[in-house]
């Protein structure tokens, strides 16, 4: 992939994202028009309190999840894993559940911290196990992760059921941006910082995808990079689950699609993956708002359909050679 073509790709993606951003500001139960914005304060308030925070939240989440998936695929050397198919998101859910249980008044920040810790533990266990599955059967790893996630989900459901927290659990287990308001989404900016952090170590991540031996041979502290990667994945997943709930497939399909178009030199592709993740999620969120206007379909449901379809296309279509 030449540098010029690469830059055109980034530019195009950014333009699409900007367009969707504007559309997202305009779509919702309350009307926002340019005319109204010029004259009244009510519409400005709507924009500032609800529409803008929501749109920013979607962008941050989409970018963060796509990068989390990208990192996970690099460090597991398996193209078909991502946080929601590796037990990460479900471990985070368990963490929030436990905190809510022990300390109902805990702040959002503290919940995120707890969720990050459990996400880290759950993902580390998955990686240790998945590592021992035969590399000749790459499909076993995501399968193992999906079922592992559903087992963790069953544990969470069981706890929630016993303690009458089922309603809370359903909030976390299905991603939804309709509740995002100013003052309640800002934690997501952590994800943005982590995306930048990932970009700074992009070369190392590319090398890690070549394998442990190649990484050590090139002088990379493999164990520390593994920990760093795990940390980024866990925190992004935890923040997402705490603020909006589980959003499946973004981390899976976006890195794969970008890889098919632009290859796997992450320093070049990582920004594109982040922007594309934001585009996909924003498009799905807008779609969810339009399908049954003025009611909303949660983005988790829309992504479940769009993401699953894209994923099936990805695994059925043999690699384009050339």
């Amino acid at each position: 992939m030449s540098i010029a073509a690469n830059q055109i790709g980034v530019l195009l993606a950014t333009l699409v994202l900007a367009a969707l951003f504007l559309v997202s500001l305009g779509v919702g139960a309350g009307d926002v028009t340019l005319f109204g914005l010029w004259h009244g304060t009510a519409e400005l308030d709507l924009l500032a309190i609800s529409r803008l925070p929501r749109t920013v939240a979607v962008v941050l989440t989409g970018a963060g999840l796509a990068i989390a998936g990208l990192i996970m695929q690099a460090i597991t050397r398996n193209r078909f894993v991502e946080p929601s198919t590796a037990g990460t998101a479900q471990s985070a859910e368990l963490g929030i559940l436990i905190v809510t249980l022990l300390w109902p008044a805990a702040s959002l920040g503290f919940k995120t911290l707890a969720a990050s810790v459990t996400a880290l533990l759950g993902t580390a266990f998955f990686l240790m196990t998945a590592h021992r599955l035969p590399p000749t059967q790459p499909f076993l790893v995501p399968l193992f992760g999906l079922v592992y996630g559903s087992v963790l989900g069953a544990v969470a459901t069981l706890i929630a059921w016993q303690l009458d927290l089922l309603q809370y659990l359903s909030i976390w287990s299905s991603g939804d941006f309709s509740g995002v308001l100013r003052g309640r989404y800002e934690l997501l900016w952590i994800g943005a910082f982590l995306v930048v952090a990932a970009w700074l170590v992009a070369d190392r991540l590319t090398i890690m995808a070549l394998g442990r031996d190649a990484s050590i041979g090139l002088g990379i502290d493999y164990a520390r990079m593994m920990q760093l990667g795990l940390g980024i994945i866990s925190v992004i997943s935890a923040v997402t689950v705490v603020v909006v709930g589980v959003v499946p497939f973004v981390g899976l399909v976006v890195p794969n699609l970008v890889s098919r178009l632009m290859g796997d030199n992450l320093r070049a592709t990582l920004p594109v993956v982040a922007v594309s993740g934001a585009i996909l999620l924003l498009a799905c969120d807008i779609l969810g708002r339009l399908i049954r206007f003025p009611y909303e379909i949660p983005v988790g449901t829309v992504m479940g359909i769009v993401g699953a379809l894209l994923f099936l296309v990805l695994i059925f279509q043999p690699r384009v050679r050339g």
Partner: peptide
Amino acid sequence: DMGFLLLVGVVIGVLFRS
């Protein structure tokens, strides 16, 4: 491949449930 089939099955499950 068996793993492939299973994965497809699980994903189809997610799709239809959504």
